[in-house]
Computed example of a mutant assay.
Amino acid sequence: MAFVASAGPANDPVPLIAEKALWIRRRSFRMVYEAQLGHPGGDFSAADILATLYFGVLRFDPKNPRDPGRDRFVMSKGHCTGAFYSVLSAAGYFPDAELDTYMQPMSKLNGHPNRNYLPGVETNTGPLGHGLPVATGIAVAGQIDYADFRTFVLTGDGELQEGSNWEAALTAGHRKLENLTLIIDRNRLQQGARTEETATLDPLDDKWRAFGWHVEVIDGHDHRALYETLRASPKGRGKPLCVIANTFKGKGVSFMHDNVAWHHGVPNKDQYEQAMRELV
């Protein structure tokens, strides 16, 4: 079993996390550009979270992806496969060259992650609102077995309009699943509009507290804050953890920043080249 989290201050992973987050943005945008398909805005808002998980927090072994002692990660916002496939490749689950097949006919890297095709994918996602219920079930199993693995799940914020999330939240709070961590990519944009124009979510932190969760609200692009919050031991907390990570869709590129058009926009040649100049 490979422990990715650092052993102490002498092995501070934050510089590596920052390096990997930049690489994820550049690699995923190249994938979207070449395929002319994808969801780059959400890829960019989630890049720092994914880099922190895989290079500072999660316990896993890419050579043994079904090790029963591994930490589980569920990518509930399954449409953001550019970032997810990039981090899985960077973490060693499959070669970088595989990313060049993104969205091609018969590729294993299709628009939504499929556990039957790729190692490192815990469950198929894409239809929104499924990831947290599945992760809650995994955490319940761990609780019953007195297992020491942790379960993490990343959702979008627009995704929280699906009622299945709140059924899972109620169950997790009731069962005091301290082994469960939910991270919300709170970029405040969804397909076509802002979340608050579609169905009001705020005060989002109070909603989760009312369901029996411990809540932390952080800057979702601050690698240090992400690392310290997600790596903290859950032992004795007695509640599941909800991390509301405030982010920006399209983070890192001027014309994409906080722009709803880039939920599933694809770049032309000039836009691609400009983005690569800015992503340094």
Rank of each mutant, 00 (worst) to 15 (best):
A5W: 03
N11G: 05
D12E: 06
P13D: 03
V14P: 09
W23C: 02
I24Y: 06
I24F: 04
F44R: 03
A46T: 15
L50T: 00
L53A: 02
Y54H: 11
Y54V: 00
F55V: 01
L58V: 02
F60I: 13
D61I: 10
P62V: 12
K63Q: 15
N64E: 11
R66H: 12
R66I: 07
M75G: 00
S76Y: 04
G78N: 07
G78V: 04
F84H: 13
L88E: 04
A90S: 10
A91C: 11
P95G: 05
D100L: 13
T101G: 12
P113R: 06
P113Y: 10
E122T: 09
T123L: 08
H130S: 07
A139V: 06
A141G: 14
D145I: 00
F152Y: 15
L154W: 07
T155N: 12
G158N: 05
G163A: 09
W166V: 09
E167M: 10
H174P: 04
H174R: 15
R175C: 06
R175T: 01
L177E: 03
L177K: 07
L177D: 01
N179M: 05
T181L: 03
T181R: 04
A193P: 00
T195G: 07
T200I: 15
T200N: 11
L204E: 09
L204G: 08
L204A: 09
D206H: 12
D206M: 14
W208G: 01
R209K: 15
H214C: 07
E216T: 07
D219A: 13
H221Q: 12
Y227F: 15
R231T: 08
K235Y: 05
K235V: 14
G236S: 10
G238M: 07
K239Q: 15
C242H: 01
I244P: 02
V253Y: 00
V253D: 00
S254N: 11
F255R: 02
N259Q: 12
N259A: 08
V260F: 06
A261T: 13
A261N: 15
A261L: 15
W262M: 09
W262Y: 10
P267K: 11
N268E: 14
Q271D: 13
